[in-house]
Write a protein that binds this DNA or RNA. Structure first.
Lengths: 207, 207
DNA sequence: CATTTACTTGACCGCTCGTTCCAGAACGCG
DNA sequence: CGCGTTCTGGAACGAGCGGTCAAGTAAATG
């Protein structure tokens, strides 16, 4: 052992993530990263290999945050649908952290798939994890009589998963926060089969 | 007037569209375009200005096709919801024309917004046109009693618009055609308030 | 048929890209 | 304290980028 790293790898990954998120993979140059990360080119290459590996590491970190939120957010207390709705709102709110850049995962899928196999695998895993978490929660909603009989938990999970991805696209075009979650409002009103919930937002999470 | 063009501008735009669609804006090099279009660099620049203008022209052409489909597909005959569902299936089918590259519009929004103002304007207009067309058709569905009272035509249009964008993303990750339109199946089942329509597909357009 | 005018081609330009490399700095260790 | 090792920063590199230009070519015109 000799001279130790002067930087925290995770902190660097966070900054790289924000840059790739804002500009996309191809439009982000190594010179941008050198400037943003405050490291010399040599240090970046020694620590992460090359641009693509750095991108994959940054995207993995982003997806890991999402997975962690989904893994810890659900419990068996309180109304299942409202809890699910709250989690989706928090996922969307987290993606507002990067201005109007949308969702890093959605942007990466749109830009790099189907050509980039490594990013494809990450995206597959992430979507599967989310869909399964949604399905489990809708299963509980169904058992507790909250879910409309018109739809199965699995179909509802697929619907919500798809809808959230779509919101990330529409939001980049029309950032109006009032309209951003309108699709979710409608979806939850239909999922619960309750006409009264259509215009207004659902109740927030339990205190 | 002297020597006329040896190429058809629209045919060239179609080929440029396919290339940008497949590879994205930044990843498509002028040398790729020279090879794919079969024109010299000078001819391309003389005809279209620069790479970005060529991209905008290609995207406009793509969006024009979508607008044309939406403008001509609806009439007052037959069940409104089934007609709408058929149009959405045709929109999705048209986007399968470029392998698993998804939707050119969604890809462009994800890659270039919010930084590219010109593409942003095109996308805004296109989404607005689609949403309004959906809303008109759902209005007719409501008048004819096909639409669930749980949702307004405007909210349903927003829901479907968002869902279609989401399908384009999910499809790039999981191209299985059986699962591609599953979200649409669920959405239409919920919109019609009919539990019987959940597992199976809706009826096709009238003969 | 000669002239004019527009279009086509591909060599060429300066620049920026991702990546490599090396000289020097900073720390752990004997 | 000084040696060995690792990390650091930036100069340098070849490749490839988007864009330009001038010479050659083909159609329209009188």
């Amino acid at each position: 052992m000799a001279r130790p790293r002067t930087f925290d790898e995770d902190a660097i990954l966070d900054r790289a993530m924000l840059l790739f998120w804002r500009k996309g993979y191809e439009a982000t140059a190594m010179s941008d990263l050198v400037e943003e990360l405050g490291l010399g080119r040599g240090s970046i290459y020694a620590a992460f290999g090359d641009k693509h590996q750095l991108f994959v590491r940054a995207l993995s970190r982003y997806l890991g945050h999402q997975d962690a939120l989904l893994a810890t957010a659900f419990d068996a207390d309180g109304p299942a649908l409202a809890q699910l709705r709250d989690v989706l709102d928090r996922l969307l709110a987290a993606d507002a952290a990067c201005g109007n850049a949308g969702c890093f995962s959605v942007n990466s899928i749109a830009e790099l798939l189907p050509h980039d196999g490594e990013v494809a695998r990450l995206a597959q895993r992430s979507l599967r994890v989310a869909e399964e978490a949604f399905a489990r929660q809708l299963e509980r909603a169904a058992q507790e009589g909250e879910l409309s009989a018109t739809i199965t938990p699995e179909a509802g999970a697929r619907l919500l998963l798809t809808l959230v991805q779509g919101i990330q696209i529409v939001r980049k075009v029309d950032p109006d926060p009032a309209r951003t979650a309108a699709g979710l409002d409608s979806a939850f009103a239909l999922l619960s089969g309750d006409a009264s919930k259509q215009p207004a937002a659902l109740a927030p999470a339990p205190a």
